[in-house]
Simulated assay, not measured.
Amino acid sequence: MSTLLQVDAIECRYDQLVITRDISFSLNQGDICCLLGPSGCGKTTLLRTIAGFDPVYSGSISLNGSIISSPDTLIEPEERRIGMVFQDYALFPHLTIRENIAFGLRKLSKQEKGERVTEMLDLVNMRDLIDRYPHELSGGQQQRVALARALAPRPQMILLDEPFSNLDSELRKHLGLEVRRILKSQNISGVLVTHDQTEAFAMADYVGVLNQGRMQQWDTPYNLYHEPANQFVANFVGQGYLIPGQLQDHNKVSTEVGIIEGNRAYPWADGTDVDVLLRPDDIIENPSGSITAIVDQYTFAGSATHYRLRLPSGLIVESMFNSHAEYDIGDPVRIEVKADHLILFNNNVKDNPVSV
């Protein structure tokens, strides 16, 4: 599989304000990646830099082996063969759907334009709406048209800047999977910007987690969830929370909720104070469990209920119970830990290793 996009140690600035520092990652042809992080972390700036709207201060960006951005090079956006789908769709209100999609196809003949427009509308299942105007469409339909317009010139890559943020949650989920299907069917690479980890995990082959302008981890969704590189990633991805413990025998830790043993070994001495990463699915209800917690808060979510539980020490942990298990605030519940992984962070070590 060939590398399509290569980002090497780029730094982006607005005047003298540093927005991103030392960002590096690569994307293969046909893969979809997501830039994930909180507001203000530099996601959109990085996307705009890849598109060619903003320059780089240092480092370089290459597409198919050719540099398209560096301190000395800036290939214009229209020459990069990169499509862009904006958060607000950016459709021309005075043009029909047909005319919006054909807008960037000036070099094609009239017949070729018509064929390409029809092909794109078939791809997004909207041929019946070809002569409508944007204001006559729903938000989801407008987003499909925006995608079709971006795909029409046959770009090498598509950039999507929080494209589903204006849609309701169910439509976001459906449209996200649909966009992934369309890009995969065309073997077109995509770079998605979002702050929604569910969206990122559903759409992307690789996810880059950013914070304060730096790449915290670039990895598969599975590895981000199970092997976070640091505490920021652990907390940001997958509803993680940390409880204190003491390391024993390099691969197990003593905590308030019992001994947790996993398949990772750590280099620190026995008795080292550590923080243990747990997820809601690591703590389960068990009437015979040795730990009694008090329900502090709960949220019913259909097939499961998300509980916040207060341990005897006052520490709060979280768990997902089957929705048939009903507890009210203040009720006692017996629990146990069922974690086959062991993710530890030593607060005395900078840039904690995940494992050795």
Rank of each mutant, 00 (worst) to 15 (best):
S24R: 06
S288P: 03
V317T: 07
Q111E: 15
L105G: 03
A339G: 07
G139K: 01
V124P: 01
R13C: 14
D122L: 13
I50N: 04
A9C: 08
Y133A: 05
V237T: 03
G262T: 07
Y307M: 09
P55Q: 06
R132H: 12
A229Q: 13
L278Q: 08
I283C: 12
Y14W: 14
L108S: 10
Y266Q: 00
P134L: 06
G208H: 07
Q217L: 07
P312W: 00
A146V: 00
P38K: 11
N166C: 09
G262I: 02
T20G: 04
R81W: 07
D8A: 10
I291R: 09
E115A: 15
R214T: 12
V349P: 05
D31N: 15
E336R: 12
H135M: 11
A339Q: 13
S62I: 10
E178K: 08
E318D: 13
A325F: 13
L121Q: 02
A152E: 01
Q246E: 13
Y241F: 15
V193D: 03
N64Q: 14
E11N: 12
P244E: 02
V354G: 11
V7A: 07
Q156N: 15
T305M: 00
L121W: 02
N286C: 12
E326Q: 15
Y57V: 08
L344G: 04
N166H: 14
V274C: 10
N125Q: 15
Y222P: 03
T220K: 07
S138L: 11
T305V: 10
D168W: 04
I75T: 09
S26T: 14
T305F: 00
Q297C: 14
P134M: 04
E136P: 08
S66M: 15
I188Y: 05
W218T: 02
S58Q: 14
M84W: 03
I188C: 09
L74C: 10
D161A: 07
M120T: 01
V209Q: 10
A90I: 05
L315F: 14
L27W: 11
F300D: 00
G42D: 05
V356F: 13
W218E: 02
L35K: 06
S319A: 15
A148L: 08
I284M: 09
V7Q: 04
D8H: 13
I97Y: 07
T198M: 13
Y222N: 12
P163M: 11
G176Y: 10
D8T: 12
G42R: 08
S189V: 01
M215P: 01
D249W: 02
T3H: 09
R308A: 15
L35W: 05
T305C: 04
L137T: 00
S290M: 14
L105I: 09
Y307E: 06
L315T: 15
K252L: 12
G37V: 02
P77K: 04
F236Q: 08
H135E: 09
F103K: 07
Q111P: 00
V337Q: 12
S24I: 05
R81M: 10
R334G: 06
K113F: 05
Q217T: 05
K184C: 11
L4N: 07
T96K: 08
N28F: 11
P163V: 06
